[in-house]
Design a protein around this nucleic acid. Structure first.
Lengths: 358, 358
DNA sequence: TTGAAAGCGCTAACAC
DNA sequence: GTGTTAGCGCTTTCAA
């Protein structure tokens, strides 16, 4: 007892040797199972004591190998510097942490090839589940994972042909909210700055844009629909095009996300077009800082907290009962944040058609 | 050859069995070492073929255990939804990926207790290195990791007493840039909205604030220094205080980060104080969207890309040669982004003292 | 050119 | 109450 212990390498086995115990006992104590295994108070205390003194933390890698479970979730998103995803990741990380999971974060940089590569990497790392906000139009490289044994939740964008649980805002209704607010304020010539074709979020929002016009008895002018990416550059370019070709031909602009809106604002400024005096603007994706814009932007807000919660729930559900995997989707409602970027230019436009089945 | 293979569980051993080979051989082929081991073309091809057909990816967990190296880096930051950190994480993730590392992302939520807990978790997960943007004033819980064997890089905030490589903007000089721009425009009564006391970034910026005033022969009015956190709430509260107590007693405000600036703007709006007509404003931490603010904000930009690059470099350097660990710090220059939130209210103020040794 | 064997650190089944 | 043993999937000597 008085002999200086040999200070074995930090491991359960090492601790066990130094204490003259078996690894099992040490493992059980450290796992907090002392009680249920009727391990003596004295032994338990010795173990805890030494572990604390040596600042020993069990090797989760070895544990993972033994248990075939890593308590790790792969999170694969197109761009962590986009604050929509950053906020989502925050909620998800925190939610999963509470359940004992860590996340490996991968950023596909809007590149489907990189996405495919990272997906394989995450598989190799034996993640217990996958959260994917897919990039691009194709789902070929995703298919392999989505039929498989691994729990997967698809975020924000999803594919009809993949039978996977997904979580998303109700992009269709969100677009309708924006459009109806324009119509209430007398706008009928409304331009649309699109995101990437083929992505669920862009396609759904576009559907909402079109259908609302139709429901209100207005015709869809294809020349007012512009752009094909979710970044600022595209917002700028598309807005420029619209301004050069169709100036005075529209009174409002619907931008399909925060970055597109910012790009559009730059173009509008260059053309000395004032918002909302000359053109009204609504952006999809609320950001707190839109409050400070000139003018403060009216937006469609996605329910970030709720999206995060739903993602975690759907994933844990699958992990807990892998058999009961009926793929279910969650569509959460957006909300309209009214600020000052929409001008009233006439009486409200009345709806022509009955509310369509959604 | 024609017999249906037994489709062993996906593992190197399984593949080996099905092919009548040894695990060693399969491992070598899959690791791309076929050449150097003179493995026959035929064998090599068989292995690659089957691996591809079964979509087999080697188990990185098992590999990690065997090699005592996980190719995983722990990244611990106070708030991933703060776009400063989000952008940093993006650069770092991408840089590390190119070198074969994945990251486990942990968000300490500005909570030192959680930070300590996550640090232990990351240790347990056997990360090969640690990137920490520490929270709070105390470094007690960090000390254990920073003398240890694990490579660590401290980001953005750092502690004098810990001998660890760090990467940070030159906060002191950044603050001076802001202050000197105010002085050039005739401001002498400049308020300061601080971040959390005791953090390197807040303390350094405050030092720059004070020293610049002194160098220009102005006295530091402590009642114009307000606030104690890096969030919007604090920006709002501190600005309110200043407005209630000292209105007309200052002509400029230096906000120590983007969130504080946004909070301050809300307070200013509530008091109907116009920027820059009534009060000028400079924010530390450039954000692209500040361009759209009303007015567009003049800011101090941190070199995000370069910070990220330096972090990766310093970390990899340590991983490669663990012995050569002379703790070195990297301090990168900030830059002034001039927009429209600073008004000229008088002739430039002249410097009184010689430029102090930094 | 390939294989056999050992072991990374852990836990669970099965002793006693 | 506690120990023994086996094995998770991989790589790496060492041997042939």
């Amino acid at each position: 007892m008085k002999t200086k212990s040999k200070t074995n390498p930090l491991s359960i086995t090492g601790i066990a040797k130094d204490l003259g115990l078996s690894p099992s006992t040490v493992s059980r104590v450290l796992a907090g199972k002392a009680k249920s295994f009727h391990i003596s108070e004295a032994t338990s205390k010795k173990v805890l004591e030494l572990a604390r003194r040596r600042k020993f933390t069990p090797n989760a890698i070895a544990r993972g190998l033994r248990l075939l479970k890593t308590s790790t979730i792969g999170v694969l998103i197109p761009d962590i510097s986009n604050s929509f995803y950053a906020q989502l990741v925050r909620t998800v990380t925190e939610g999963l942490r509470r359940h004992g999971y860590s996340i490996i974060l991968c950023d596909s940089q809007d590149d489907p090839a990189l996405e495919a590569q990272l997906l394989e990497l995450l598989t190799g790392r034996q993640v217990d589940g996958l959260i994917i906000a897919p990039v691009g139009q194709s789902s070929a490289h995703l298919a392999h994972f989505c039929g498989g044994a691994k729990p997967v939740v698809m975020v924000d964008r999803f594919f009809k042909n993949l039978k996977v649980p997904y979580v998303s805002s109700d992009n269709y209704s969100g677009a309708r909210q924006a459009m109806e607010f324009f119509l209430e304020n007398g706008h009928t010539r409304i331009a649309c700055l699109k995101g990437l074709n083929g992505t669920a979020s862009s396609d759904q929002r576009l559907r909402g844009y079109r259908q609302t016009l139709i429901d209100y008895g207005l015709k869809v002018d294809e020349s007012l629909i512009c752009g094909n990416a979710f970044d600022e550059q595209n917002g700028y370019t598309a807005m420029k095009q619209l301004l050069n070709r169709h100036r005075r031909n529209f009174t409002a602009v619907f931008a399909m996300n925060n970055l597109i809106a910012s790009g559009a604002l730059i173009a509008l400024k260059e053309h000395a077009v004032k918002v909302p005096r000359d053109v009204s603007l609504i952006a999809f994706d609320e950001q707190p800082y839109f409050l400070h814009y000139n003018p403060p932007l009216t937006t469609i807000a996605q329910p970030l907290k709720e999206l995060g919660k739903a993602i975690v729930e759907l994933l844990l559900e699958q992990i807990k009962s892998p058999q009961a995997r009926r793929p279910r989707g969650v569509l959460l409602p957006t909300s309209l944040v009214i600020r000052e970027s929409v001008a009233r230019i006439g009486p409200p436009i009345a709806r022509k058609a009955a509310r369509p089945t959604h």
